[in-house]
Nucleic acid binder design. Sequence first.
DNA 1: CTACGAAGTCAACGCTTGTTGGCCTACAGT
DNA 2: ACTGTAGGCCAACAAGCGTTGACTTCGTAG
Lengths: 189, 189
Amino acid sequence: MTAPPTRRSDATRAAILRAARERFAADGYERATIRAIAADARIDPSMVMRYYGSKEGLFAAAAEFDLRLPELADLPADRIGEALVRHFLDRWEGDGTLVALLRTASTNPGAAERMRTIFADQLGAAVARTVADPATAARRAGLVASQILGLAFTRYVVRLPPVADADPAELIAWVAPTVQRYLTGPAPR
Amino acid sequence: MTAPPTRRSDATRAAILRAARERFAADGYERATIRAIAADARIDPSMVMRYYGSKEGLFAAAAEFDLRLPELADLPADRIGEALVRHFLDRWEGDGTLVALLRTASTNPGAAERMRTIFADQLGAAVARTVADPATAARRAGLVASQILGLAFTRYVVRLPPVADADPAELIAWVAPTVQRYLTGPAPR
DNA sequence: CTACGAAGTCAACGCTTGTTGGCCTACAGT
DNA sequence: ACTGTAGGCCAACAAGCGTTGACTTCGTAG
């Protein structure tokens, strides 16, 4: 047990992180300035540097993200698609971090790398544990990612009206079969 | 016939536009600097301003984009999905403009608006012409956009390995049924 | 009560960016 | 040959950025 329980600065650190996530989500990496983040958190820009070293360091801390995937094996095999789509919509409807990552991955190589890691490790691993054929597991996970990220991109970033305005239940009903097929459907050819 | 046939500066204008598209596609809006674009085109940064007024103006000119969708009604009804996926892969494999738009739409409101227009007008209209039920046409077009843009995003922007490394034929085989169902499948519920 | 380290503030730096206006150059019409 | 004009270049500007270091304030341990 090495940890000194709480430092006085923890509240500030947390405020910075919260403001950073909001700004990164709203504006992307380059337009989210340290000065603006500091203003939101009501502290001095230099505090950000003290605690996170640099803008890159701040982003790395703000973009820590756990998909919190459920154990797919515990679900009824024919409901995995539905459960996954529902889970993702819930997950990022309440947490701007993934939108921040999505916006930033477009221009920042580090963020793109982070995104690759998250989806390869977390989603890839969960899929590998459930899919029968290990040879196609990675491809299946990639296809699921393409539909899930496409949904997030059109709904939260571009805000294409027919997708952004739909209620979650309808989106789930439409998209779940796609994900289900990518996971458990027969491989083509 | 109002047009003076060719001005001496047309070659320069075109060079700027070509360089701009490449830079915007590779770096996104904010990291693609006018100076870098001008250097690529081997002209002075001030020329960019002379011809396009501002960086926003340059982007607006560079992001002009026609999806060149085929007339869907001319295709066999059960092959529309396949044809569409193949068309999109072809279309942006050879032209960086859409990738530039994709990267830029993440952070630049104007680019997001442009993206919305392109997909609502061009794809939305083409879908509306083929889908039986006009009430669901917009939603179906949005869903197609979500899968198509998700594919582009994972393959060309994030470069998620299982999607980026796949060859087009395999991607088409996996994704075509999704698009086909979004277009011609029964509406859920 | 005092001293010391952490937390926070302030002002400035060096750099890059988009943008501007003045200057030079080359070509077309007479 | 001469001149007007469009094409192109150079140098500079103001603004905003990330980042730095020195200074002040606060809370606590001895």
